[in-house]
Design a protein around this nucleic acid. Structure first.
Length: 276
DNA sequence: CGGCAAACCTGCGAGC
DNA sequence: TGCTCGCAGGTTTGCC
């Protein structure tokens, strides 16, 4: 499920029900997800009011009024589902439940358990092991052609791999990298270091365009639904290339159509004629 | 240091 | 119907 647009959608859903509310009870139904939950996590959260829900890269940051921050990551299969606490029915893989002071329950469901939950002080976030070193937010003003080109300079790895590296730009994942490279008409096989100048400008515009459209659509749903309401995101209907091996290229009349290759053990979709 | 494969864990669809 | 295999949106680790 979750790349930047999906995490952004989840954050907006969480903000609507959690901000200004007190977290009465943090129900930990196992002792770990990808990592063990930090010692005393429930006590660090219970009785605190939520000041704000924010996103950094693919991390959900739940700021508490006492300066503590809950850091959540959805991994590959994580979901946050909001519903009434009364008559709550837990489902398989509901590992954590947040209970608010106004009768709302948020279930953190994660079948594959690649997600996690951590706690930090707000003033320490910049030095948090998982957050330090993250590259710029792709939708922020600070993410520009020159900034990207500088990060890519000298890199021999394919541009596909570089864009998945969260130190270069934070929040892209496997789907949106293929989509952005298609919009920018750049081959995923091209060496990252050759993307500079006008090419870098074009790629930055493509990344911002794809992410903005995906957020507007509520993200993409594959097997899981994305939004906290349980509604489907529908950006998958706007994909140009992802998952479309063998289908006609939407941008040209090439005979081969959309190709699927494997880079760094992950599927890449592209048009070899339109993308150079 | 850079780049790549494998590992973490579970579910689902395709194919036999 | 039921089994096996391959593949899946992320990130870290370890190896060359």
């Amino acid at each position: 499920m979750p790349e930047l647009p999906e995490v952004e959608t989840v954050c907006r859903g969480l903000a609507a029900v959690l901000e200004t509310r007190v977290l009465r009870h943090l129900e930990l139904r196992r002792k770990d997800l990808r990592f063990p939950f930090p010692a005393g996590l429930a006590a660090l959260v219970e009785g605190r009011r939520v000041a704000a829900v924010r996103r950094r890269a693919k991390y959900i940051l739940i700021h508490l009024e006492d300066g503590g921050v809950l850091i959540a990551h959805l991994g590959m299969s994580g979901r946050m589902l909001i519903g009434p606490a009364e008559g709550l029915v837990l489902e398989t893989h509901d590992h954590v439940v947040f209970h608010t002071d106004h009768g709302v329950a948020v279930r953190f469901n994660d079948a594959r358990r690649f997600g996690f939950l951590d706690h930090a002080r707000a003033e320490d976030l910049g030095r948090h092991k998982l957050l330090e070193g993250l590259g710029p937010e792709p939708l922020g003003n600070e993410f520009s052609g020159p900034v990207l080109a500088e990060k890519l300079a000298g890199k021999l790895a394919p541009i596909k791999a570089a864009l998945l590296d969260q130190k270069i730009v934070a929040g892209l994942g496997n789907i949106y990298v293929s989509e952005a490279l298609f919009v920018a008409r750049l081959s995923p096989l091209r060496s990252a270091g050759t993307v500079s100048g006008a090419r870098a400008e074009k790629l930055v515009r493509a990344i911002k365009d794809v992410l903005t459209r995906a957020i507007a659509a509520g993200g993409s749903s594959l097997r899981d639904y994305v939004q906290t309401s349980g509604e489907l995101g529908y950006f998958q209907h706007q994909w140009a290339v992802y998952g479309k091996e063998g289908e006609p290229c939407p941008g040209c009349t090439c005979a081969h159509g959309i190709l699927r290759i494997v880079q760094s053990n992950r599927a890449t979709f592209y048009c070899a004629k339109r993308q150079r």
